[in-house]
Design a protein around this nucleic acid. Structure first.
Lengths: 226, 226
DNA sequence: CGACTGCTTGATGTTGCTCAACGTGCGTGG
DNA sequence: CCACGCACGTTGAGCAACATCAAGCAGTCG
């Protein structure tokens, strides 16, 4: 296993920035960095969760399968802790994580992580802040999605990739139509139809997975109005 | 303001059980206990959040209004922290909280709360655990709801009241049909229809808000299959 | 070349929302 | 006290949104 030097890591989390030199050393001693290619599984639903996962670089989808159907909970870009609640909330993972591009992940021993929380209240507080923000975010996603119809959700997703992931109005979708369907709770046919509708209405340019937002204000309107 | 003695409180949270005598005194000095009747608002969406709220006794609905429509996020029974993420995640509340029966709430000054987190890592860890569990719970709710149809969601709600709230198969609904609609993302007509369907099929006994589960296994099946 | 995956498009049936009407109980103000 | 408005609850009819089913197309890999 490669030795990890968290103190010199350029991708430290805001929380880890509050750690002392010795705590960072302790972290590094109990931490393994692993590379994943697109499509590779980082951890699986129902497996024992013995590590906290931190994405240093790359992009990951968090998903799970309930009652036959696959659902993608969210797509996360580095740097970020991966599903902290899943690590602490229960002994087993409630979700799976799969890389959707080349991704490097630090696995931190959960006992070490916990002992650092015990020792460093500011670190703990920062984690609480991040958990809280994440939760608010997710609540709004859930509730908004629930009362939006499909066109609105697809518009949302496009804007999400443009603003949150790529910071650009032209990008290549990193996921299939099926993935978008799983993410928005629709089926692939509907995703396809709505994307071509948007294309025909000159709201987006679309060529396979290459997407360009042409009429952002209209897209935002669709996203908001449902 | 009534002086609060947290150290002798019989409704302490698991987290507060980890505090020292002096920390509990500090908590009590910066804490106000308030009583609410059914229908009274505990805090409002968009108001500044300067307190952590802890329900000692009673039951509360967490709700918010987005794009015209009212949505109930969840119903919480004492004892529990009320929307911790809303307190820490942002300067304003993202949700409202309303009592649905007589409820007593401790408002804890957020600065005090934070300073105790800084000082006591085990308290912080316990909070992280609770936040994590809550978040997993809510994820499952959101995702399951999204892929269920209305009958399944109503069945869910009935089972929720029976198991999580009243621990009994016969109880009086504490909320209106409209509230159930807001909770499940439907409209009151559909709720009404489905409840009378369940009644006609002898799955539940129903008389106004008095509800009895007659065929629990079938109800569970409906809840699971969608 | 054939099997396979990802994507698109059309036809069809179902779900559930909306609208509308009507009954009930409750509180307010005349 | 009654009249009125108002929230709540129920029931029916019509319609829009979507999922499902079915078929076909393009690209890829063995």
């Amino acid at each position: 296993m490669k030795k990890t030097f968290c103190n010199s890591c350029e991708f430290k989390s805001p929380a880890a920035g509050l750690l002392t030199e010795s705590e960072l050393l302790e972290l590094g001693d109990n931490c393994a960095e692993v590379e994943f290619g697109a499509g590779e599984i980082i951890f699986k639903q129902d497996a024992l969760s013995t590590n906290v996962a931190y994405i240093k670089q790359g992009m990951v989808k968090i998903h799970f399968k309930g009652s036959g159907r696959e659902r993608i909970m969210k797509i996360v870009k580095a740097p970020a802790y991966l599903c902290l609640p899943s690590a602490f909330g229960d002994k087993v993972n409630h979700f799976s994580a799969t890389a959707i591009e080349n991704t490097s992940v630090c696995f931190i021993d959960i006992t070490t992580f916990r002992s650092i929380i015990y020792k460093n209240g500011r670190f703990a507080y920062q984690l609480i802040l991040e958990l809280s923000k994440g939760q608010i975010q997710n609540f709004h996603n859930c509730l908004n999605n629930a009362q939006k119809q499909n066109t609105g959700r697809v518009a949302d997703t496009i804007l999400f990739f443009a603003h949150e992931i790529y910071n650009s109005n032209a990008f290549t979708l990193p996921v299939s139509r099926q993935d978008i369907a799983d993410l928005t709770g629709m089926n692939r046919e509907s995703v396809s139809r709505i994307l071509t509708d948007f294309h025909e209405d000159k709201i987006i340019g679309l060529n396979n997975r290459n997407l360009t937002i042409l009429n952002e204000s209209l897209l935002k309107q669709i996203s908001e109005k449902g």
